[in-house]
Design a protein around this nucleic acid. Structure first.
Ligand code: MN
Ligand code: MN
Ligand code: ZN
Ligand code: ZN
Lengths: 138, 138
DNA sequence: TCAATATATTAGAATGATTCTAATATACTC
DNA sequence: GAGTATATTAGAATCATTCTAATATATTGA
């Protein structure tokens, strides 16, 4: 587990002590070829499935929120039922397939830069995100 | 209450009988100069404030959802805490001020048409929405 | 108009996601 | 390794939303 040192650094960076539960969460989130989208429940199930040691709900929530706050995770709100987190923290956009509940990345490069012709004095822009809802034909 | 006949038509169109509770909700939502954004809780408070007859939670939820299903309302999910409805059903986008929790319309005309350079065979696009998160300068 | 029937309203219970609590366990410092 | 700070945990609390089933209202058509 060579990666562990990376996870420990990451945890320390967000102000968390590297406990075995948190390192386990890091493995699940960051020890992947591809970034991915997940709900808290999906993450809890993944954690349970791969090893058989349960991590309490509180620890999962607290750790995910800490990563989000420091920018290691993004939150993607689709509708009132679906709240996803995203390990892809680059600027990018999403397709959401309403037929399958699938969330799909759309790279920034695949959309022309968004030019806003309305100014809001005294405000700064924090993020610009495009959500494209799609459905299966028929 | 000349408007009532409009509301009654609207309600019948979405498949709801025009009861006094539902007409009251229509007044609150549609009897306005400007469209507006609201959460269910805000709507419940408005209903309570203006007349003093309480409408049950179930009726508020059911009516709002029926309007949404038929396109008389849009749902705007900002983050896990904030779920808004919008009486502006035209294609448009939003600023969300994270400092004040204010949701502001941005007309379609204020953003260049979004061209997506990625095709998804067998899918059709249902909506394209841009959410711009802003914050007050310091 | 008025009964018969379909549908709506309601309070409160149920559910599900998230947060809190406070008792126990672990990590860190020296 | 002792002492202190912090983390983990199960379960309770909270909050939004949905469900339930008893009561009330709207609609229909004789
Ligand atoms: Mn909602
Ligand atoms: Mn959430
Ligand atoms: Zn993504
Ligand atoms: Zn709007």
């Amino acid at each position: 587990m060579n990666n562990n040192s990376v996870f420990i650094e990451k945890l320390r960076f967000v102000g968390l002590r590297p406990t075995k539960q948190r390192i386990r969460i890091c493995e699940e989130l960051f020890n992947r070829k591809e970034t991915f989208h997940f709900t808290i429940n999906e993450l809890k199930e993944l954690l349970l499935k791969k090893k058989n040691q349960k991590i309490s709900q509180a620890t999962v929530y607290n750790t995910v929120k800490a990563f989000k706050k420091k920018g290691y995770l993004k939150e993607i709100s689709i509708n009132s039922e679906k709240n996803y987190f995203d390990t892809n923290t680059s600027n990018h956009h999403h397709f959401f397939n309403e037929s399958t509940n699938e969330l799909i990345d759309l790279d920034d490069k695949n959309i022309d830069k968004i030019k806003i012709k309305k100014t809001l004095p005294g405000k700064k822009i924090k993020s610009i995100e495009v959500l494209i809802k799609i459905a299966n034909n028929n």
